[in-house]
């Protein structure tokens, strides 16, 4: 058998799952969709002592509208469900478009929205998407809960603020502001492959087409999703001209990303991609803003 032995728990309620995580402490690892964890276990790169499988916890699979026009997504909602849900498309058209870029259909049938966030792969789409959309995460443990902003959640590659006894239970997406537009740009070597560089841009304009807010989030070019401060400094309060966008793209590619070199591309090439993708993304997002 490929993976190393582990103890297996399959709770059927959140309460039971939290009690199990509490009693296991550092030995326990949550199993969500398993599309990253199980391959890592097959290689024996990951050897958790115990798995707490959430696939039988029915109360964690849902997409609910919130009264303010946002959405609450249960942590175990499959990517393919998010991708095809009409309410998600209506309220957040950028979400299914981004989710469609995650790996392949078979993986999206199994992979989960919350699992991707808790796993915190620096090359993954959903962590960056959650930062771009100012998502809030409900983190639960036995006898307690807390809310964490997406921006404060990711600590490093595969590292988050989650404690061993905690579980990400729900993702809340606040409504898109009036005058919003969004864009997703990525370059990968093949369809479904990891992005060599990618950027999610969400902008808000006022009635005079001036930029009120801009969130440019880059990923696969650093240890966590990177929320650009430069874009904000240059664009907020101004009309986003082609020159201003080009300046933002140039500065981000120089100062705000930290891509690595591997067999698929050099750091220099990835910086170049960042520059091109930010320019395309911001241009598209401002065109879409209404």
């Amino acid at each position: 058998m490929k993976p190393a032995p582990f103890e297996y728990y399959a709770p059927t309620s959140v309460e039971e799952a939290l009690a199990t995580l509490q009693s296991l402490g550092y030995d326990g690892k949550v199993l969500a969709g398993g599309q990253s964890l199980i391959p890592a276990m097959n290689f024996r790169m990951a050897r958790p002592a115990a798995l707490v499988d959430l696939n039988k916890v029915k109360e964690l699979f849902y997409i609910k509208p919130t009264s303010d026009g946002g959405l609450a997504i249960g942590t175990m909602t499959r990517d393919s469900v998010v991708e095809k849900d009409p309410l998600v498309s209506e309220r957040f058209p950028i979400v299914p478009y981004v989710v469609k870029h995650i790996a392949h259909p078979q993986i999206r049938n199994r992979g989960t929205f919350g699992g991707a966030i808790a796993h915190a792969d620096p090359a993954a789409q959903i962590p960056a998407l959650s930062v771009a959309l100012q998502a809030r995460f409900l983190v639960r443990k036995q006898g307690g809960e807390r809310w964490v902003n997406a921006e404060d959640f990711f600590m490093g590659p595969f590292m988050t603020v989650l404690e061993p006894e905690e579980m990400l239970a729900e993702v809340v997406l606040p409504p898109m502001a009036k005058g919003s537009g969004a864009s997703y740009q990525q370059v990968s070597r093949q369809k479904g492959g990891y992005a060599q560089a990618a950027v999610i841009s969400v902008v808000v304009v006022d009635e005079n087409k001036r930029c009120k807010d801009v969130r440019v989030v880059l990923f696969s070019v650093g240890e966590t999703p990177i929320l650009s401060q430069t874009a904000r400094k240059i664009l907020v309060g101004n009309v986003p001209t082609a020159e201003a966008i080009a300046e933002v793209a140039e500065k981000i590619s120089k100062d705000e990303v930290d891509p690595g070199t591997d067999i698929h591309g050099t750091a220099e090439y990835r910086r170049h991609l960042v520059k091109v993708l930010v320019r395309r993304g911001l241009t598209e997002a401002f065109e879409r803003a209404k």
Binding site: G34, I38, S80, Q106, N109, R110
Partner: peptide, 12 residues
């Protein structure tokens, strides 16, 4: 639904 059987445990 199409899934990969190598990234699912039989217990699941």
């Amino acid at each position: 639904e199409a899934v990969r059987s190598c990234t699912i445990f039989a217990v699941q």
